[in-house]
Simulated scan of single mutants.
Amino acid sequence: MKKMISIAVAALLLPVAAFAAPPNMEPGLWEQAMTMGAHSFTNKECVTPDMVKDGPESLLNHRDEMAGNCKSSGNWSGNVYRFKVDCSAPEQGGTVSTTGTMTYESPRRMLQVVESTTTIEGAKQSMTMKVDHKRIGDCPK
């Protein structure tokens, strides 16, 4: 069960990788302020120039490996990226299906809304997550 929750959270964060190249995301220290219902938490991630240069596909594939068996797709329409990520964890008897949007406001800010449904041994649980991505400075040396 704990691993399935980890996979669900990782699947929610997978689409973050799809924004490392288009359109002009600035490298640096990024903060993700996440809200799920009454719960909120913050994560920080250093986005390097190499991560931006390699583009979204290589980052997404790397995070897919970290999260488990996941398939992802998405497309841009103006400054909005719409995506879908489906993950399976046969050893846990479960799946996670995620859809969402990322609105690109500037090279330093993006807003994300994600809806996810987790199924474990036939029982379904849905949640909505909102994430405010902001570049907050340079990466620590």
Rank of each mutant, 00 (worst) to 15 (best):
F41I: 10
L111S: 04
T118Q: 06
D132L: 14
P23K: 04
K141I: 01
A17P: 06
P49N: 12
D138Q: 13
G74V: 08
G93Q: 09
D50P: 00
P90L: 14
G28C: 10
L29P: 04
R135I: 04
E91H: 07
K53N: 12
D50I: 00
T48A: 01
T117G: 02
R135H: 05
T98F: 07
V96Y: 01
K130C: 13
S116D: 05
L59Y: 02
L13W: 02
L29G: 05
V113W: 00
V96H: 01
H133L: 15
Q32M: 15
L14A: 08
K71S: 09
G78V: 03
R108P: 00
T95F: 04
I136Y: 10
S106K: 10
G74E: 03
M129H: 05
G122E: 02
M102A: 13
G74D: 05
F41Y: 15
N75M: 14
M66S: 14
K3T: 14
A67G: 07
T101A: 07
K141G: 06
E65M: 13
T35Q: 09
E26V: 06
M36K: 07
V52G: 13
A67W: 10
S116E: 05
A123D: 08
S72M: 08
S97P: 00
P140V: 01
E31P: 00
P56C: 14
D86G: 10
E31V: 02
V16G: 03
A10C: 15
G68M: 11
T119I: 15
T103L: 15
P56L: 10
G137H: 09
M36F: 09
S6I: 06
F83T: 05
V85C: 04
P140L: 03
R63H: 06
E57Q: 13
C46A: 15
E26K: 12
W76Y: 11
G37S: 08
P49L: 10
M34S: 11
V96P: 00
K84V: 12
W76S: 01
G78R: 01
C139L: 06
A20N: 06
Q125K: 11
L111R: 01
R63S: 05
E57C: 01
Q92R: 02
K134H: 05
V131C: 00
A11F: 03
V131I: 15
L111P: 01
E45M: 10
T118W: 01
C46S: 15
L60C: 03
V113I: 06
Q92W: 05
V9N: 05
S58H: 03
N75A: 15
F83P: 04
M36R: 10
S88Y: 10
I120N: 02
S88P: 02
S116L: 07
V80C: 09
P15I: 10
P27Y: 08
L29F: 02
E65K: 14
G37K: 02
P49R: 09
G55E: 14
Q112W: 01
N24F: 15
T99M: 02
K71R: 08
S77I: 11
T119P: 00
S40I: 09
G100V: 04
P107D: 07
P107H: 08
N24P: 12
Q112S: 03
S73L: 08
K84P: 02
G37N: 06
L12Y: 00
R109F: 12
V9D: 04
M36Q: 12
L111D: 05
P90G: 14
K124I: 06
V80R: 13
I5S: 05
